[in-house]
Write a protein that binds this DNA or RNA. Structure first.
Lengths: 160, 160
DNA sequence: TGTATATAGTTGCATATGCAACTAATATGG
DNA sequence: CCATATTAGTTGCATATGCAACTATATACA
């Protein structure tokens, strides 16, 4: 009625599976939180903003349809509307009507936006490097990358 | 002035690093979202709740100090207060004063709470199995687990 | 012992997110 | 060309989260 491994007719995952899953979730949460905290500590905006700026910065002409942007950063459309609105208020992004599709709106990163992203980058970079990359050598990292890519590959289809 | 790899004096991460990092973040977000959606679709409460119930269910006596609980599920303390409050309103958890530490509060899972968790489990389980475990064989999974554990190990210290 | 400091938990207020209903524009199919 | 269904984006309202200030207990230490 007790024992250390209690309540276990849940034993339909192996320990390895459970640990892999839990590990993945916690690891990502921890790492993201580290970055988030670091940014906050230095007075920068949240990770969300960085992600959006980054996607825009690297996109053709520094701009994307809200729709596309949303897919890339994995935000729901109403959140895209809102974050872009906030970014616009800060002058980091501008919004323009799409000429060919009357429904479409482009978000376009401004110089100020590019600057900000560039300032945030070292903080981001160093944190991830310290708490993630530093744990692996080149070969391992490549293996890890390959593993992770396999998850994603089909994860995407699921969501469509 | 253009080219496909633009804006790149950010080249202080290798491609592998960038992809590993981005992959990790996106993969976890996608997977969690899949689970979340599946739960919602079947009329169950959010993943948050599941995580809390799970930690309590497997804990000694089905109860934990809010503080400990928070550490395990990676919530800030005010969010612990609140989620436990909501769970209590639903009769899934009860709160009791800690006898030895006057500041401490225990959250204790109720039978109803255990039941609910058990009902949610198959949904959770199947989703993760389908979108995660199914991509790997036993050996690979173990490797992946080991990788991930390495991140966590030190990630935790960072946050203390 | 008495004072200072740290820890556990809560709460008010501001902000962010989720949901569902809405507008406007495009695609589809007769 | 018209009626209908889709898609992009927005918005009001409810809920959840973050922050900072607060209470109460516990610990440290002079």
């Amino acid at each position: 009625m007790k024992g250390s491994k209690n309540t276990n007719n849940d034993r339909d995952w192996t320990d390895t599976e459970t640990e892999a899953w839990m590990g993945l979730v916690k690891a990502q949460q921890l790492l993201s939180r580290n970055v988030e905290d670091e940014l906050k500590k230095k007075g920068y905006p949240p990770l969300n903003w960085y992600d959006v700026l980054w996607e825009l910065d690297r996109a053709e002409d520094g701009s994307l349809r809200l729709n596309d942007l949303g897919k890339r950063v994995l935000f729901d459309k109403y959140n895209v509307t809102r974050i872009v609105q906030r970014l616009e208020e800060e002058g980091l992004v501008s919004r323009t009507q799409c000429p060919v599709d009357g429904r479409g709106i482009f978000a376009c990163i401004t110089d100020k936006g590019r600057m900000l992203r560039r300032e945030m980058w070292p903080v981001y970079k160093e944190t991830v490097k310290k708490s993630f990359f530093s744990k692996f050598n080149k070969k391992e990292l490549k293996e890890l990358k390959n593993f992770i890519e396999r998850i994603q590959a089909s994860g995407l289809e699921e969501t469509i």
